[in-house]
Nucleic acid binder design. Structure first.
Lengths: 229, 229
DNA sequence: TCCTAGCGGAGCGATTTGCTCCGGTCAACC
DNA sequence: GGTTGACCGGAGCAAATCGCTCCGCTAGGA
């Protein structure tokens, strides 16, 4: 990961390096939060301020705003993939699926959907997305084979559900207002909603209405640039 | 409603009046759509353009951008109240609740949540909100008394659920891209998700986790102005 | 003591904002 | 046919905000 020249790790300027790394983490998290509340209009100044660093430090690490956003997406896709694989590692198919859904919706990475279409899709993003999708597919197949997940549910259904639940207007709004005292209550409220939805996913109820959604619904969103401006 | 001097209704300048009314309708619908995609940053120019009118016409009807947004909120609250009363008029308690949820989530009025906190709450808004809340409470009580709705669900649960489902990132994004060809497929996909959630609301499953959410979660969002700027 | 990697943020030009203001249009009257 | 006047669309304004550059400064290592 690091190009080694003259003692890395605990090398000469190790303290600076550590600070830089902390700043990078803060930057990425701040970006997620600001995008969650401001959408694609999120400004670099707001992101830097929230991270507690100067805009200069931001631009030393990312050549452009778009590059930062792309990095953010790649990390989110990594998180999805990791969550799906953790779910697959669990013995119970239902618990595995719920584990994935919880991880994918509760970490806040779903909030960066608004930047879809405003940045270019890097090869890394496409690859990570592909691998994540396959893992989720396995998760679904396994749960349906065990008869615990409604049989007519598709990957697209789950993807759309993840996106719908990943964004929490309430939490984002409270965060923007600085009402950290209500965060715990809001998290509790959200977990109740999610529990309702998970129960709705269980097999045993009447078939869903309509037809299985096409995967085009998802791919088209990222492949196009915004509508001519 | 109109100050009558020299024949109103089919009066002398009736044609102009009709055009003005059409413009007003278009303006309100355009505002909803633009807010859905751009959030609170939605610009008056974008709204006017989407409505197909000049900004001048917008400002003749609303003295300020905030006034337009307030009107929009009042209309949305009217729609909620009407939907709840329609639900109460239905014989079956479950069908009545689902009717309300569908109406409240599918009309797109939920998308204006992002402007919460950016505009002042008018007395009319507070009143309409109060009456709507009471109607929803009756809807919930009735369904729980009939044993068809999970007994631990509260008004706040339902309000949060309405907000969560009211915003459709997929539909808004496709609309922003002008992909009207995919709208029907997106509507189908959304109705499937909603069906899943409605099934999750039905009585007969294990109790929800956590504790009933406090109503403070909702009221606080509207009562405060944004965090000092 | 000096060196220098990395820092924060003032400031740049370009863009976008909410809003005003005015010339043009068209149905209704004389 | 000419006049009127309500209503329209959008050019244009000052102010705010944008992405990004640049530079003076701080603080650890030699």
């Amino acid at each position: 990961m690091t190009t080694e020249r003259s003692k890395p790790g605990t090398g000469p300027r190790a303290a600076r390096r550590a600070e830089a790394e902390r700043n990078d983490k803060a930057l990425l998290e701040a970006a997620r939060e600001v995008i969650a509340t401001d959408g694609a209009h999120a400004s670099v100044a707001a992101i830097a301020a929230r991270a507690g660093v100067g805009v200069g430090s931001l631009y030393r690490r990312y050549r452009t705003k778009e590059e930062l956003f792309q990095k953010l997406c790649e990390l989110a896709l990594d998180a999805y993939l990791a969550a799906a694989e953790e779910g697959l590692a669990m013995a119970d198919p239902w618990d595995g699926l719920v584990h994935y859904l919880r991880a994918a919706t509760e970490h806040g990475t779903g909030s960066l959907a608004p930047i879809a279409g405003t940045i270019d899709v890097t090869p890394a993003m496409a690859d990570k997305n592909e691998r994540g999708e396959q893992a989720v597919r396995r998760l679904i197949d396994r749960a349906q084979a065990a008869g615990v997940l409604r049989p007519e549910i598709t990957v697209v259904d789950i993807d759309l559900l993840t996106e719908q639940l990943g964004k929490s207007p309430l939490l984002e709004h409270l965060a923007a207002q600085g009402r950290t005292d209500l965060t715990e209550a809001a998290l509790n409220a959200r977990s109740r909603l999610h529990a309702i939805v998970f129960d709705g996913l269980r097999a045993g109820t009447a078939p869903l209405p309509g037809y299985p959604p096409s995967s085009e619904l998802f791919t088209e969103r990222w492949s196009r640039r915004p509508p001519t401006g």
